[in-house]
Design a protein around this nucleic acid. Structure first.
Lengths: 343, 343
DNA sequence: CAATGCGATGGTAGCGCTGTCAATAATTGT
DNA sequence: ACAATTATTGACAGCGCTACCATCGCATTG
């Protein structure tokens, strides 16, 4: 314990084994499968490790064993707090396991994703979690030939590479619009930013719900590929209302936009929900606190992360799920912003 | 398991070299230092790599070379959007380099941090970026004996392990309070959540500024170790106003709390800034959009990440900065919530 | 023209660890 | 008690790559 961490000392497993009076392979087993050692040797190796301050060389371990204990996670964005919750779920459940997480982000670029997957392929991870189902052909090929379990998260679709944990963005969008229609609103605007594939599917849900009610009108839709901000919500709303002044509700593809719309309404003295209903998506924490509280579609992000990592770890260890596709659904959180004024 | 394709056999560098008609070491150089090859051989190796679909084995590379091209990043939280911006800066500047980022989070636990550092030590990263200056003794020892450049970010202090990029949270807190005092406010409340070391230093700045004006009063302070949320801002504000009804301003240690306070004021019909000034910290994007717009202390998070990764990469490649400590400062963003009503 | 320098290339040896499987010790059943 | 079985342990042989140094040939120099 009092021994200084050596700067120059090359302590290898061999040195540990020598001090403990066992063969190197036995010392190796001490780390991989301690139960296979007799109590006496286990203790001797243990104290030799401590005394020498032995630090295993992961590269050598990986080379010799053809395995690593790293699970790769590929997400589009770290700035988008939606993924923060997913990651929390992933980390929470990975921490009691032997596996460590290697996280990369693609900034919503499928080319960047491909590059990251190529890197992961060279690292031979024990498992892989990727976001969504819209990979390049090359990425898809890498995933399919990857010699480890793979989970696709955030949405569900046909033909999973391996496992899939998510929900239907289409259904969620459709459900949100159905709710607004039930409130008697007819001119429901759509505000979209970034327009990644999942947002696109929410739009499809909006469009089809509006069409089913014979209320779809392109003038109700304002989108941009610019990344989402609260401020952008206000800007898009201003564009929308300039184009189509008679709207009585807005569906925003995420909560940041919805908050921006609320602020813009306050600025313009438009009463919410009196003159304008607002519905967001994701149900971030602040939605319930806003004044008025904001309706949103709750997505089970933490659970998505938790299930994904659990399923991947189980698969690594040979416990394959009986059902590779897991639909975690969504919940409509109906609040003041989309219901009749109570006071 | 993602199913395997055709049994393609193992493609090693040897196979590539054979096909290209060169020695393995020349093929190896193709990856590490292509300029050292003659044009003819470079092209032969290049096409052999493509033809065989060669994927380098990073573990073997690391074992043989005693190096990796991974830079480890240790942050306390992925949920806290403050770090998202730092990470954006890190990723932006790392992407045009050869290095890849390995990210871990400690959930504000210095024990978890120690565990992550132990893992990194075994991986021999090319560089390391850690958050803050409050490590355990063991963590500190690991950092000091780590055979690679180390950057501590988010704050500055004495005795850096190696490099340090941040700003003074104490000064920032002090400056925020000075501004509020200049507006003529006297009963300035303090709302704090999580109370990690950096938040604690912001409090110190608040306390000393208040004491300097002979206005410090423990009844003005409400803190909790619970993680921050917008909703919590409202709750803490309610506690504060119940305890000390005559406050005329609130300094929140972060912007989420400040937004929660704004909502709570709206709920209670307390006019902002008329009856209550609000000042946040970090200047998240939504602060400027809120109604009224919210004053905050802008911290240069993106720049912090960018400088940290740049300095680490430079140090890896032998270009040590002449000054290891970089103070990126902060800016007070004065907005409606802390200034006299204009209309 | 020999001496010198240097760019391009290859041979030799491992890096530190673990898979395989055989060898030995301990335990059990009948 | 003795064979059969099961726990422990060790010897060997690489994993795929690169550091190190030697070598070769060609251009430059006086």
């Amino acid at each position: 314990m009092a021994r200084k961490p050596t700067k120059s000392g090359k302590i290898r497993l061999t040195e540990v084994a020598k001090l403990a009076g066992v063969s190197p392979i036995t010392a190796s087993r001490f780390f991989r499968n301690p139960d296979a050692l007799s109590l006496a040797k286990r203790e001797r190796v243990d104290s030799a490790v401590k005394e020498l301050g032995y630090v295993p060389n992961l590269a050598a371990r990986a080379l010799a064993s053809h395995r690593t204990e790293v699970i790769g996670v590929v997400i589009p964005s770290l700035t988008n707090s939606v993924f923060a919750d997913v990651l929390r779920g992933i980390y929470d459940s990975s921490e009691q396991s032997r596996y460590s997480i290697q996280l990369t982000n693609t900034r919503y670029s499928i080319l960047q994703e491909e590059k990251m997957l190529r890197l992961f392929r060279a690292q031979k991870p024990a498992g892989l979690i990727v976001t969504g189902i819209n990979q390049t052909a090359e990425s898809r090929a890498i995933l399919e030939t990857m010699d480890c379990p793979v989970a696709q998260i955030m949405e569900i679709g046909d033909s999973p590479v391996d496992m899939m944990i998510g929900f239907s963005h289409y259904d969620a969008g459709f459900a949100a619009i159905s709710h607004i229609l039930e409130q008697g609103r007819r001119r429901i605007g759509f505000l979209g930013a970034r327009m990644d594939p999942r947002v696109q599917r929410r739009f499809d849900g909006y469009r089809d719900a509006m069409k089913a009610a014979s209320l779809f009108d392109p003038n109700l839709v304002v989108t941009t590929t610019v990344p989402t901000t609260v401020t952008l919500g206000g800007t898009l709303f201003a564009d929308l209302i300039a184009k189509t002044p008679d709207i009585d509700a807005v569906f925003c593809v995420n909560d940041d936009l919805a908050l921006g719309v609320l602020f813009e309404c306050q600025r313009r003295q438009i009463s919410v929900p009196g003159e304008m209903a607002i519905v967001g998506f994701n149900d971030l924490e602040f939605m319930a606190s806003a004044v008025p509280s904001l309706t949103s579609v709750r997505t089970n992000r933490y659970e998505m992360g938790r299930h994904a990592i659990t399923m991947v770890i189980d698969a690594i260890e040979g416990r394959r799920p009986r059902e590779p596709v897991l639909d975690l659904g969504f919940q409509l959180m109906i609040r003041e912003s989309s219901t009749p004024q109570t006071a």
